[in-house]
Write a protein that binds this DNA or RNA. Structure first.
Ligand SMILES: [Mn+2]
Ligand SMILES: [Mn+2]
Ligand SMILES: [Zn+2]
Ligand SMILES: [Zn+2]
Lengths: 145, 145
DNA sequence: TCCAAAGTGAGAATCAGTATCAGTATTGTT
DNA sequence: AACAATACTGATACTGATTCTCACTTTGGA
């Protein structure tokens, strides 16, 4: 999805929720488009010094509510935020247990689909209706070795 | 692994770290053995009213450090704690996005092993040394439908 | 141009989790 | 058994990421 298409889609999502696509929100989306993984608040603010922390938090919450942003929790003290998968692609996260850094990665479509079907079987055995999965790889990144 | 074996193993892990296996720590381990998924602080305290919150937090941290307990973060505001996988079995979590409840589930060994090899391939392509994976299924539990 | 509704940002408040510390329990030693 | 050294406990204070508040600003429609 091109930058313009993402922008369009975010605009639509916000409009449908009767929210405006303000400059601040555009800047947050731009920040999230950068980087190789989900970003922390500190990273977002570092990327765009014109942003105010309280507004970014508020806008991330709204963007998440309308389905444009996903909040990622990895285990350290900070949440991380990324564009929702329907604006990017389905992917997963490599989480460095040493420095906490998070980067995206993807699996073959075939692995994904066999995984998905196994998951649905396991889920329905427990009366659970599955909507999505989350798969993280824990280990050590290149820098930390 | 039987109750006694788990107890033994936890005792060894603590001893090796020059920590004692006190009554309070035994009670925490007992609480974690109950339930069908990782437990929140509130659930642990509800299971055993004799426990004091600050000591349970401290002891969970120690039990995690010695490798007896794993801390799980699912996205709501509370951490959850479970016995480490080498004291139970490798498994994953169904997370209800409505009520926040978390229950364990497992996949076929075969699915696990093909998944693991795909993950290692993807990881090494990015200079990442993988040590374990984490797989959650998000959806709606039986109660919430 | 005006108005009403939505958004902003600086600071206060919240709250899960952590640190402190005086008192208690356990271990090893004589 | 008595003692000292060390670990543990639990009430409480503190921390820090996130959320809330509210006076002010911006936006979009009439
Ligand atoms: Mn996947
Ligand atoms: Mn697995
Ligand atoms: Zn690292
Ligand atoms: Zn539920």
């Amino acid at each position: 999805m091109s930058d313009a298409e993402v922008d369009n889609e975010v605009a639509t999502l916000l409009r449908n929720a009767e929210q405006r696509y303000t400059t601040g929100r555009r800047r947050v989306v731009t920040a999230l488009r950068h980087g190789t993984g989900p970003l922390t608040m500190a990273q977002i603010l570092a990327h765009d010094a014109s942003l105010s922390q309280s507004s970014v938090y508020r806008n991330l919450t709204i963007l998440e509510e309308v389905g444009a942003v996903t909040r990622i929790v990895t285990g350290d003290d900070f949440s991380r935020y990324e564009l929702a998968e329907h604006l990017t692609e389905h992917h997963h996260h490599l989480i460095c247990t040493s420095c906490g850094d998070v980067v995206d990665f993807s699996l073959d479509d075939q692995v994904e689909s066999t995984l998905d079907s196994s998951l649905h079987v396991a889920a329905s055995a427990l009366g659970f209706v599955a909507s999505s999965h989350r798969l993280d790889l824990l280990g050590t990144c290149q820098n930390c070795r």
